[in-house]
């Protein structure tokens, strides 16, 4: 998720980046926590007028973050801006692995990134994750009340763990999906460790890499890579699939060159792209796990 787009504001450690119609604070991974804390404080203090009100999600991502630090981050955000931390999410890997550390870890520390919505875009919520809404389990994440926050965070983690165990997630350790509600435009890139669902078009020049499936409720014209971490069982589903090139796992799909107009006529309706006998095939969509036989090979 570090291939970012946009150019709004930049400092060395904290970057403010537009994601869809929302805004994300992305924090440099290599900086020590103290530096991040002070940079974030300065950054928010500088632009306190920008972040007048709204909800914010803390995304720990794949990283390991001590709970005291999480609490500190929450208090920095809430005291230096009008934003309220309402959600918290982290990758299931860091839970299932059992290495979510309760105690502050010695360096290297991993910093969280934040997903937030500016107050003026409150009507659209482009990004939804496997998230925990904090208000359901009210907690006060201030450093002073570390004991209280401990139990609250533990309950959140337990909740996430049980959900993921229940879902099983088969071989893949992918469970979270990312929703994008706005058009994915040329030059915009996204990497995500789960499934990606776009509720609009993916335009030429846009790039999406997902470790899971990619589903586009619109016309897919850009470059997408499903199963980017090597899972050939992933699929690409789109209402319309004019994209000339895309990839599933390690297999590249290239639209057949012959008679594009004829194929356009015969294949109206949603399509699915999947890997069968070492090449990418495209067929009219009939279900995620349906048995597809008459797919068109996409091998150029």
């Amino acid at each position: 998720m570090d291939r970012n787009r946009g150019f709004l504001l930049e400092t060395s450690v904290v970057q403010v980046i537009a994601r869809g119609t929302g805004v994300a604070f992305v924090i440099d991974e290599s900086s020590p926590f103290d530096v991040v804390a002070s940079e974030l404080r300065d950054h928010l203090a500088d632009q306190s007028s920008l972040w007048s009100k709204g909800d914010i999600t803390i995304n720990v991502g794949q990283r390991i973050l001590a709970r005291d630090e999480l609490a500190q981050v929450k208090s920095i955000i809430e005291t230096h801006s009008g934003l309220t931390v309402t959600r918290f999410w982290c990758a299931p890997e860091s839970l299932n692995g059992g290495d979510f550390q309760i105690e502050a870890k010695a360096a290297p520390l991993y910093e969280p990134s934040f997903l937030t919505e500016p107050s003026n875009a409150s009507e659209s919520q482009p990004i939804v994750h496997n998230e925990v809404v904090l208000s359901e389990s009210p907690l006060d994440l201030t450093p002073n009340t570390a004991a209280a926050s401990k139990t609250a965070i533990e309950s959140i983690i337990e909740g996430l763990k049980s959900r993921h165990n229940k879902n099983g997630a088969r071989n893949r350790n992918i469970t979270e999906a990312l929703f994008i509600k706005s058009t994915f435009r040329s030059g915009e890139t996204l990497e995500h460790s789960g499934d990606v669902i776009v509720l609009a078009d993916v335009n030429p020049g846009a790039e999406i890499r997902a470790d899971g499936d990619i589903i586009v409720f619109g016309s897919l014209k850009g470059w997408v890579h499903a199963g980017a971490s090597g899972d050939n069982k992933c699929v690409i589903i789109a209402l319309d699939l004019p994209s000339p090139r895309f990839q599933i796992g390690k297999y590249l799909g290239v639209a057949p060159m012959s008679a594009p107009q004829k194929s356009k006529q015969s294949t109206i309706g949603p399509k699915i792209a999947y890997v069968r006998s070492r090449s990418v095939h495209v067929a009219p969509f009939a279900g995620r796990f349906a048995r597809y036989k008459k797919g068109v090979p996409y091998d150029g």
Binding site: R5, A18, G187
Partner: peptide, 17 residues
């Protein structure tokens, strides 16, 4: 049109909706 698409994306990311 491709360039316009990119521009729209950049404008949106800088808050010009």
């Amino acid at each position: 049109i491709r360039d316009a698409d990119r521009i729209i994306g950049l404008l949106e990311s800088s808050g010009l909706h």
